[in-house]
Amino acid sequence: MSQFERRALVASPTAPAQAAAAELADAADWVDPADADVVIALGGDGFLLQTLHTMLDRRRPVPVFGMNLGTVGFLMNEWRRHGLVDRLERAKAFKVTPLLVTVTGIDGRIHQMPAINEVSVLRETRQTAKIEVMVNDRVVLPELACDGILAATPAGSTAYNLSAHGPILPLGSNLLALTPISPFRPRRWRGAILPDKARIQWRVLDPDKRPVSAVADQHEIRDVAQVDIAMDRARELTLLFDPEHALDDRITMEQFIS
């Protein structure tokens, strides 16, 4: 018997993903995602992130196998209608550990949210943001003047982090990337690579005059005073990839793309 006997199918609302879902409608006896052993996600990277976030709310997260019907599809497998059962049996599993982000607003309210790719803080107005950066309760940058700053996991290091000139982190490296966004002062600071057991804290300086928002993947909180970040090892997720298109290989090869 297959380890993925009960399969669920979810699709982005885009026309290509819906058309692909219609093609697969009769390919299996699909079950509700809550009852599945594996979830097949049709769409792009953004939809896959949404699907993974739904897994975080489950007592028993199940693996997700994505097929690309979006644009980039870095976290996805190639879309093919046939041979799905065989692909699932041969798939290579990758564990993804999300970040737990605790945001304190200037009104004192506290919000907690997960981030699978990255968490960032960004200036809300034309005023440059000024942020104190702490690592493991130690102030490492008393004042970073910038458009923002982000912390990325290895799975997310090729996304926003890469576009902000941050480093690509191999899967399994147990590292986090701390990357400034358009830094003004100190001019020569280009970021840091930290062990993923590090506790990161960003404190917004003068948040009334220089308001800042916090974004964890696709969830935004505005007018923040402080952001605390740590790995959430209690909620590990699993992505499945075709052996010939494994995520670790993609991340390695991304370093050689000009």
Rank of each mutant, 00 (worst) to 15 (best):
Q127M: 15
K130S: 15
A164D: 00
A145W: 01
H165W: 06
R187C: 09
G105D: 06
G191E: 10
K197M: 11
A177E: 05
A115S: 00
L150P: 06
L144D: 08
G166C: 08
K130Q: 15
T125F: 12
I200P: 09
E143A: 12
L178K: 12
E132W: 03
E143S: 15
V135P: 03
T158I: 03
D206Q: 15
V133T: 09
I168K: 05
M113N: 03
H165N: 14
A177W: 01
S173R: 03
R126P: 06
G108F: 09
F184E: 09
G108Q: 14
R188H: 07
K95E: 15
V96M: 00
P154Q: 06
R188Y: 13
E118H: 12
C146H: 01
R190N: 08
I200W: 05
V204L: 12
G156K: 04
P170F: 02
L194I: 10
R109E: 12
G105T: 11
I181D: 03
G166T: 10
N117C: 04
G166S: 13
D147H: 08
Q112G: 11
V103L: 05
A93E: 09
M134V: 07
T158N: 04
D137P: 13
L171P: 03
G166A: 10
A192S: 12
W202D: 03
P186S: 12
P167W: 02
P183Q: 08
I193R: 02
A155K: 08
M134E: 07
A155T: 07
V96G: 02
W202A: 13
L171M: 08
L194T: 10
D196T: 04
T128M: 15
I200N: 10
W202Q: 01
L175I: 10
F184M: 14
R109S: 14
V133I: 13
H111M: 14
P142F: 11
G148F: 00
N174A: 13
I149M: 05
D137C: 01
L171N: 00
A159G: 10
K197Y: 15
A164F: 02
P114I: 01
V204I: 15
G172I: 03
H165Y: 13
P154W: 08
D147W: 05
R187F: 13
A155H: 00
A129W: 04
G105Y: 01
P183F: 07
I106E: 00
R188W: 10
V140A: 08
L175H: 05
